[in-house]
Amino acid sequence: MLRGIPTAPLLLGLAGVIPFVWGALTVLVPALQSWGIGALGSRFVGPYVQLFYGSVILSFMSGVLWGYATRASGRLQSAACYALSVIPALWAFFMTGGGPVSAGMNLIWGFLGLLLLDMMFSLWRLTPSWWMRLRVLLTGIVVLSLSVGVFL
């Protein structure tokens, strides 16, 4: 699965999911949550770190898709790609209120929707050949981690 993914995007992508995994671990391990609150503050543990960071990452991924949209050919495909690229940021902005459970569930849907957009951009050959392997891996980790905060 990791075959062909350049080292830098792989390592940076995996580093980028650390706040999601950390948030899940602090839900599962109360002693870790207590330490995290004391050392980092309550905003940096549990679902709170996941929700804030998840909104940031969905917005970041909108920018990534915008960059891939610049490779689109033709007015119709370009317009569609630019329009689609802003959806993750708008989703994060409008759908992450209402408490940690609903916000977490909406982030899960946002990341799954982002994966569909990644797939579309990949099918249109706007992304590198390894893009979907990386995105499936990272999305799986993110959704699993968010699920801990939503369902436990």
Rank of each mutant, 00 (worst) to 15 (best):
L2W: 10
I5S: 05
T7R: 15
A8V: 05
P9F: 00
L12D: 01
G13Q: 02
G16P: 07
I18K: 02
I18P: 03
P19N: 11
F20K: 10
V27M: 13
V27R: 15
V27K: 15
L28V: 06
P30C: 13
P30A: 13
S34G: 07
W35T: 03
A39Y: 06
G41C: 05
S42V: 08
V45S: 10
G46W: 07
P47C: 12
L51G: 12
Y53P: 04
G54I: 05
G54K: 09
S55C: 10
F60P: 04
M61G: 01
V64M: 11
L65I: 00
W66G: 06
G67W: 09
Y68H: 06
Y68D: 01
A69Y: 03
G74N: 04
G74M: 09
R75M: 07
A80K: 14
A80Y: 14
A83S: 15
P88K: 05
F93R: 09
S102I: 05
S102H: 04
M105V: 13
M105G: 14
W109D: 00
W109V: 00
G110E: 04
G113A: 03
M120F: 11
L123P: 05
L126P: 05
P128E: 06
P128L: 03
W131D: 00
R133F: 03
V136Y: 14
V136M: 11
V136N: 04
L138M: 08
T139N: 11
T139S: 11
I141D: 05
L144E: 08
S147Q: 13
